[in-house]
Design a protein around this nucleic acid. Structure first.
Lengths: 343, 343
DNA sequence: ATATATTTTTGACGCGCGTAAACAAATGAA
DNA sequence: TTCATTTGTTTACGCGCGTCAAAAATATAT
């Protein structure tokens, strides 16, 4: 490789023996130039390893090749994992994804959207905070920037929503638990941040009604995104004060369940299907750690692949369509029940 | 707020009744203009909510206000957490951090560094993959871009290294375990990706030597970043084949320990300090989930705050100094022993 | 070989802002 | 008031690239 540094596209074009506009065209879409010239450019590219200045590119392009990915809480491995898959797909499609985490804070989510707006991205994949979101702010943003919501829906906001079908999650766990033992109570935060939590509660109530069973909601206190600790503290209280209406517990999500298991262990309560167990516990999400809990967690799994794939594909369609879809699409993917040791 | 959209700094300057260069100066450093003019600018800013075009800014600035943060594996809550803290510090200091995850892949780490190079960041905080890194590539990068390494050191690369003192971790756990029961064997991957793992092994051997105890290394197979599964599989094998030389196990890191606990539960082996427990287990890192395992994990904790703070402060010093430090600094922070249920 | 379609070149302008120099105005102390 | 100092204005240029129109070169079909 030659050592001389190339300052700009003009110099590189001169070294190629090709005009600058053609080089520019190549970088916008390598297939838009004749194969023979493409070959010459790529040969020179190997030789001199030139890269166009992104800032100059993005300043003049009407639309950048950037894609924003926003998740509510990156320290949650669930989001870390889904972000990883989405990131990869964007890169493979020739885009430049940038990852942001709202860290559970409304102010930060707003800041991120403002920053994102000035990045003029081709599109954005946004998993909003949910109830903690500044709804108007998100709405305004989505009006200006082609955005797909995922994981957590805000009615009417964004060009499309891609997520999981909460009823599918809960119906499977409730059905399984009821069929194989006693019916579950539903363990959740009294004031959940995520709208999925509300959908899951409704699904639980609906399923119990269909099965002609009496529903029991066990609501625990706590705010923020430290779900494990909230679940642990709530479970300790409920268990100590003997407030559990059934011996079968269905947690709204896995992170609460992880806390619940911790509390059980602390109190010497055995969880699982075995004879010496007094509690059965199941949950939702198939959190990356749920297979390593003690006992491993019976849960309903997101179809990670399907959600990420479809979210990304919808975004690409949206971008191709110029930022507008005829109608707002909502796509929900079914859950898959994963039976493990806890129930 | 007025509705007319402002296209550029010229228009905004006209609306302020102030010249464009002064506006430009303000955005580079609000304190560089007289308080009275600053007030007028900020008043107009509220009125018209103008934001300068980042691309045009960065194209012309000799140095951008961007800071790159690179971690080896974002789905590991340990890195997610440390990235969160660092991100916040950068924002508060007026920089624009961008987060990247190498996802455990050498190729991706190289790509990220290339991308980062063309972003012309003011500085980079890099936690390299470690042994899986393309050392030459990282070295080349660090020569061109002001970079602080953290978490995982590469000798002589980057302007400084900030991390934890592995000897401090291991000495405390080994001392504690030996004093309160039998001496531990050391449970680790036979081919660990992270250089910290090697330092920890050496520290274990050294501590055992000092205490006049016989060391035992238990090495398990596995590659990649799925440490929990590797730890679980390894522990299953070791436990089933009765290869454990002692009843006290010290894991190289918490994620392996989480897998180990999972295996123990599967085999009906009780872990902890109680009379009916047959194994004591301790580890290192104070992983965010280690307090929720069953039993909760006795571990040596990173001083997250100190590491992130010092890494960021060193980077700011580096940036102020124009990208070069007189000598390469290495700062290590001591661990704090956290006694929980597992040992 | 000729006509037609495709690709490339040339030349030029614009994007929005950084920055420098020379000058004007405001400030503050003597 | 006067002079020195800070702060702001004016003017002008440059950054690296997108993009357009017209002309030239090349490829494909007849």
């Amino acid at each position: 490789m030659s050592q001389e540094k190339i300052r700009n596209m003009d110099e590189f074009a001169a070294l190629c023996g090709i005009s600058r506009p053609t080089i520019s065209k190549y970088f916008n879409d390598p297939n838009s130039v004749r194969p023979s010239t493409r070959g010459r450019i790529e040969a020179a590219l190997k030789e001199y390893d030139y890269r166009p200045n992104i800032y100059a590119m993005n300043q003049n392009r009407r639309l950048t090749k950037n894609i924003g990915i926003v998740v509510p809480y990156l320290a949650d491995p669930f989001f870390a994992e889904i972000a990883r898959v989405i990131e990869r797909r964007c890169i493979d499609a020739g885009f430049t994804p940038t990852l942001f985490s709202s860290h559970g804070e409304q102010g930060l989510e707003c800041d991120i959207l403002d920053t994102l707006r000035s990045l003029r991205p081709a599109g954005v994949l946004l998993a909003p905070l949910g109830r903690a979101s500044d709804k108007k702010h998100v709405e305004d943003f989505c009006r200006d920037v082609p955005t797909i919501l995922f994981d957590s829906n805000i009615e009417g906001v964004g060009a499309a929503f891609v997520g999981s079908d909460n009823f599918s999650f809960v119906s499977q766990t409730v059905e399984y638990l009821s069929r194989t033992g006693s019916a579950p109570c539903f363990f959740e935060m009294s004031d959940p941040a995520n709208p999925n939590a509300n959908k899951r509660r409704h699904a639980y109530l609906e399923m119990m009604r269909r099965l002609n069973l009496e529903p029991h909601l066990v609501k625990i206190d706590g705010t923020g995104w430290g779900f494990e600790e909230i679940g642990r503290a709530g479970a300790l209280k409920v268990l100590k004060e003997d407030l559990l209406p059934t011996d079968t517990v269905l947690c709204s999500n896995d992170r609460l369940a992880i806390g619940f298991l911790s509390a059980c262990h602390e109190l010497g309560i055995r969880v699982g299907r075995d004879k010496d167990c007094t509690i059965r516990l199941a949950s939702h999400d198939d959190h990356p750690y749920s297979r390593f809990t003690c006992p491993s967690l019976t849960t309903a799994a997101h179809d990670y692949e399907a959600v990420s794939d479809h979210a990304v594909e919808t975004l690409f369609r949206l971008i191709d369509a110029g930022g507008k879809l005829e109608t707002r699409e909502e796509t929900l993917f079914a859950a898959r029940l994963i039976m493990r040791g806890s129930a």
